[in-house]
Design a binder for these strands. Structure first.
Length: 286
DNA sequence: CCCTCACCCTGATCGC
DNA sequence: TGCGATCAGGGTGAGG
């Protein structure tokens, strides 16, 4: 499940492997992967002869800068890139193949077919709606405390739902949301507008630190996948709560609990972060 | 505007 | 052993 650190790791790998290469032809095997306004047919045709100059990232989006086009790629849940020699048998779940002029393929694999590609004219790349709407990158210089505080004060949604919202801050997904809230010792269900100034500052720092540490570790690898870009991360050894249900909290030894917040599996320490009971909606017991 | 939830997909795992 | 139900969750869009 690629979040910012995994996508950044993929970006670095792609820049090493395919920057400078030229696209000879493109095969799309799952048409829905290519988003409007362009059909998959147009997508394939427009990319012929384009050189890949560099690959950028914004939030969880990859942006391939070509001669005339910016190709935006989102890996969603399970998207992966591989680089292989042309002619190697396609692995299962191969949906898009960029044949390069140097006898290699850049291949896109995605078990669940959630990933998406789209094309923007290079001079209008800033107009790509989904990226325009993103919140700041989670770095000290871009993610200001004042802006974060202002956003939190305007909603009573659960704080976890808010930090997963890409319009508030870009790049945080389910793993790093849980880890950041644990680090800041804040309950995931706490209404955002109930965080005091100290908690808000702590959470901002936690998000910045957790993401930066994960980028440095090359992301988190839950399952290994040979020869796949960005899947040799080491951050999983640093996880404190994500996927640790019933294991001892590394801070206080209390068993980690799992619940659902904003339709997402949510791991937290009931002692360090407090019980969720006081935030649960009243209703029939069950 | 604010918020919740279904949907898109497949594979792994769970309960019986 | 089989088999249906459930879970996994990023982003979008429908609808309350």
């Amino acid at each position: 499940m690629p979040e910012l650190p995994e996508v950044e790791t993929v970006r670095r790998g792609l820049n090493q492997l395919v920057a400078g290469a030229t696209i000879k032809s493109v095969d799309v095997f799952w048409n829905r992967m290519i988003t409007p306004p362009f059909s998959s047919e147009r997508f394939q045709n427009e990319l012929v002869g384009e050189q890949i100059h560099t690959i950028e990232r914004r939030g969880k989006y990859l942006i391939f800068l070509l001669d005339h086009w910016a190709m935006v790629s989102h890996l969603r849940m399970e998207g992966k890139f591989t680089v292989t020699k042309t002619g190697e048998p396609y692995e299962k779940h191969t949906h898009v193949v960029f044949h390069l002029s140097d006898n290699r393929d850049l291949r896109y694999l995605d078990v669940r077919k959630f990933g998406r590609f789209s094309l923007m004219p290079i001079d209008k790349k800033e107009n790509y709606g989904p990226i325009q709407k993103l919140g700041p990158e989670p770095t000290t210089s871009q993610f200001s405390l004042e802006n974060f505080q202002e956003k939190l004060s305007r909603t009573q949604r659960a704080i976890k739902a808010v930090i997963l919202d890409q319009h508030i801050v870009a790049g945080v997904g389910n793993i790093y949301a849980d880890e950041s809230l644990f680090r800041a010792q804040i309950n995931p269900m706490k209404p955002a507008n109930q965080l005091n100034k100290g908690e808000t500052a702590r959470l901002r720092e936690a998000i910045i630190t957790v993401i930066a540490n994960a980028v440095e570790a090359g992301g988190t690898t839950i399952r290994t996948y040979k020869n796949t870009l960005g899947e040799a991360g080491k951050f999983q050894v640093a996880l404190n709560v994500y996927g640790k249900t019933n294991e001892d909290c590394p801070r206080c030894g209390t068993p980690i609990e799992k619940t659902k917040v904003a339709q997402r599996g949510t791991h937290y320490c009931p002692k360090c972060q407090g019980s969720i009971a006081r935030y649960e909606k009243k209703g029939p017991a069950g």
